[in-house]
Design a protein around this nucleic acid. Structure first.
Length: 170
DNA sequence: CCCTGATTCGC
DNA sequence: GCGAATCAGG
């Protein structure tokens, strides 16, 4: 699969949105996360917005070198110190579609409450927070992404065009 | 063990 | 330019 302009644009967008390489790869299809990362680097946008999170002093010695390199291999014994590394927590800040409507019915045993929610669980709210049956989707979500595949699509929906109001809603 | 991005280098 | 293999880390 080639990197046409469309795919590159989508890659840029998703990367800027904070999606992980594997997530992006899954969305694009036909590429692995390695391909995505490689492309990201080639495009020079690995900085990922303003925060420099992973650009902390990460010292890399002994590169990859699968083949017979030189007999003259230098061995570094240094370890990187990460003591003073500042840490910023920045949320993807994506706007979820403000729909209190539940389009899904989650089986009782799969429902997640605020207490049972884990990082890898979809935190899409279902129902009314004031009601007893309020719960979260709770299905598997990729780390870093707050929602499962299904709800991710809703949350990250491109910007709906609402020009055509007259046409009936599907 | 699951994941993350980073890097190298044969293609 | 591309991306698998690998590395380094969470």
């Amino acid at each position: 699969m080639a990197w046409n302009d469309e795919r590159v644009e989508l890659l840029k967008k998703l990367w800027a949105d904070g999606l992980s390489a594997s997530q992006i790869a899954a969305r694009l299809g036909g590429v692995t996360r390695n391909a995505v990362i490689g492309k990201v680097h080639r495009l020079g946008l690995s900085a990922r917005a303003t925060t420099t999170r992973s650009s902390s002093p990460r010292i890399r010695r002994a590169p990859v070198r699968r083949q017979q390199p030189k007999q003259n291999t230098v061995v570094y014994a240094t370890r990187g110190a990460t003591a003073l590394k500042p840490e910023f927590e920045e949320e993807p800040e994506t706007v979820a579609a403000p729909q209190p409507v539940e389009e899904l019915v989650i089986p009782l045993h799969e429902r997640a409450t605020i207490l049972s929610l884990k990082e890898h669980m979809c935190r899409w709210p279902i129902g009314d927070p004031g009601e007893d049956d309020f719960h979260f989707c709770g299905r598997r979500s990729d780390t870093g992404v707050p929602y499962c595949e299904h709800h991710s699509r809703m949350a990250y929906q491109p910007v709906q065009r609402r020009r055509d109001k007259r046409s009936a809603t599907g």
